[in-house]
Design a protein around this nucleic acid. Sequence first.
DNA 1: TCGGACCTATTGGAAAAACCAATGAACCAC
DNA 2: GTGGTTCATTGGTTTTTCCAATAGGTCCGA
Lengths: 295, 295
Amino acid sequence: MNHTQLRSFHAVAAEGGFTAASRVLNVGQPTITSQVKALERHFDVELFHRRGRRVILTETGRVLFRIAQRIISLEAEAEDSLNTYGGLQAGHLHVGAVGPYHATEMLSAFRDRYPGIKLSVTVGNSMEMAERILDYSVDVAVLAHVEDDPRIYTMPYSRHPVVVFVNKSHRFAKRRRIRLAEMEGEHMVLRELGSTTRLAFETAIREAGVTIDPVMAIGSREAVWLAVARGIGIGVVSDIEYIPHPDLHTVEVVDADIYTTAHVNCLAERRDARLIRAFFDMAEDLKTRRNVASI
Amino acid sequence: MNHTQLRSFHAVAAEGGFTAASRVLNVGQPTITSQVKALERHFDVELFHRRGRRVILTETGRVLFRIAQRIISLEAEAEDSLNTYGGLQAGHLHVGAVGPYHATEMLSAFRDRYPGIKLSVTVGNSMEMAERILDYSVDVAVLAHVEDDPRIYTMPYSRHPVVVFVNKSHRFAKRRRIRLAEMEGEHMVLRELGSTTRLAFETAIREAGVTIDPVMAIGSREAVWLAVARGIGIGVVSDIEYIPHPDLHTVEVVDADIYTTAHVNCLAERRDARLIRAFFDMAEDLKTRRNVASI
DNA sequence: TCGGACCTATTGGAAAAACCAATGAACCAC
DNA sequence: GTGGTTCATTGGTTTTTCCAATAGGTCCGA
């Protein structure tokens, strides 16, 4: 059975005539005639009684019409559904992030722009996020780290200075700015080796010929924060990630360009998937707006 | 949305791959690829994640698949239904007849051959039957009368001698055969003017130059039968229509070829409608079988 | 009862779609 | 690696769909 034939039949039955059906389907009337006739001939049934210029469903036709109506209605439903997803009025975007800091702004903007899209956020380190991108369990990920993998597409999003933060009793506690050289020999609490912030900081001091004393490496931002609050050492953090604390104080490093860059990542081959493109477009807009605002 | 695309999508989702889908649908694999791709491009959605040689439904794809399954299943139902009607395993045939006499044999044979077809029988006179054929309220009609209407197709079915029947006290009651001339001046109980039996009989006696005395014309076979039983006159009837009665006796007319012919009729343009053709074919078979049996 | 309006059927040819064979590229199991 | 399997791409062919023109019929009102 041909679907065009079924659609023609349905229109004729619904509109009560071949000509009326042809108008509804935007085709010529002979087309309708031949489609319905082909359907009748193929199954060797009569679907309509042609009484002069009136057509009346036969019993067979009535049975078919009931089924056809359900099919047509389901097709409309399918089309609606696809339009809804394609038009970004429904859908589900899985977002990965190494921490909520960079991602929240984007998630909030995305939610405002596409209220119908469900958002799920997975938090994990950069390596985990890269894996999840590759196995489709997240659609986009906001990372500081840049994956060196041709399968992953990366867009720089925002640049954040790395600041030093110290306990209130530390000698830097009264300072607003320091120079890098002043950190020589400082006890420091650092993140684990893979941390992008740590990498940026260590690159900077190595270039400046400064050496520090890494007293502790901890695998969590909050743990570092607490350790510094207790005076175990001083810490470094991306300014956007810094959480105020009564015992803590931040200090700007003036003579070095230490920063981390947040990137939006996705599977390269999915760069143009509807939802993913929408997320990147929105990130692009946020970036531009911030630049304009800062002028 | 194109139906071919939907079918391809459904097969891929159901079979778990493009190649598997192409085998099920008996088309080449490139066809499937292009159909699904076209569907995705048209609505700007992703339906499958292509993970190497494995394909996995996206959320959008899952939603569409559920709808597509229902559509495909309804299409199978529609096709089944049409095959059932086309294969004469279901359907409804409206049969008209002037009396049950000629029709019952055919109805019985038809029911045996096509047990799934519902039969409705409408009884009425020839003129009513002709009208009902023309307005589609009966599909076929078994009549003695031949309609002189080009829109009605007619097939002769069986020829039945017209016999005379008399009351036990009549002078013919002891006879097996009479000649037509012997009926000169007889009191006769006849049917109404339109009766085919009456017409055949009157034509025969006119040709033979015999005149009779029509004492009564009654519009019902049963009424004539009763009138003759009471001795009001003698009657004529098609032998197949004759119903025995203790007070009645049938007499054959040997020197005249008086008979009626049962015809099967239908709307000429519907001669090849499946059910109608089946009825005619069956009538043809019955006729042939009777001729063979009579040799 | 006659003609205009309206409807379905038919036909031949044009436009569009579905389709395939061949081939490429990526992946997986051995 | 290597062969077997899978999806993607390309071009050209076959099939389907479609239309314009037209015929033949019914219906309705003058």
